[in-house]
Amino acid sequence: MLKVTKLTKRFGGLTALENVSFKVAKNEILGVIGPNGSGKTTLINVINGIHKPDNGDIFFRDKSIGRLSSYQIAKKGIGRTFQVTRIFRRMSVMENMMVPALSISRSGNQEALLHKSLGILTLLKIVHLKDEYGRSLSGGQHKLLELGRVLMLDPDLILLDEPFAGVHPELKADLHDHIRKLHGQGKTFILISHDMHSIFSLSQRLMVLSSGKKIAHGTPEEIKQNEEVIEAYLGN
């Protein structure tokens, strides 16, 4: 579904990603781990078009998306969340959900879109907050809302950047459920997390980044045994 080839991204003198190649199969959950500053977030930013790659390319369903803008990539079916949530604070939860409507309104009428967003909010168990302003929600609720907004576009591939950071344990369990449920519906995920328990239990495959380079990949079991990985983590 997603193919990344020899991806390189530099910021001035700093090389954030170097020659990173990997593939994600349909309906797979790929976990990405690595120490702070290893290039995990940059990877997601490049995939969804916030940064343009300096070298290499990205193919989504065999079509190059490396030069496209974020909004075009979003329309092609790649959604993402942010490490620090980026919801619209001066809009209600419902309005937040309806922002993507502008880009899909041709294919659905207002009633249907409202129905759809209520369905998603119900699924995420935040439908009771629908008229609250974005800024009055808790951190965990922000994560859910952001995920909900992503789902409005019906993406096939969802990039989650630290979805469990700063989330109440109860909500975290809920999030696990949501990810599993969506995975069951056929969605594909790339998941970044420092929460080793979560990422090892959710991911089918893992990729390890260190200083912008891919140093290992494999099943969770293989990664646990990999000495280079252990060294990379201990080295920090």
Binding site: N48, G49, I50, S69, S70, Y71, Q72, A74, K75, G79, R80, F82, R86, I87, F88, R89, R90, M91, E95, V99, P100, L102, S103, I104, R149, V150, M152, L153
Partner: peptide
Amino acid sequence: RAVSQDREAAAIAGIN
């Protein structure tokens, strides 16, 4: 309004 509050987040939501 979305663009006015957060350009990147709006783009992620498919807004040009």
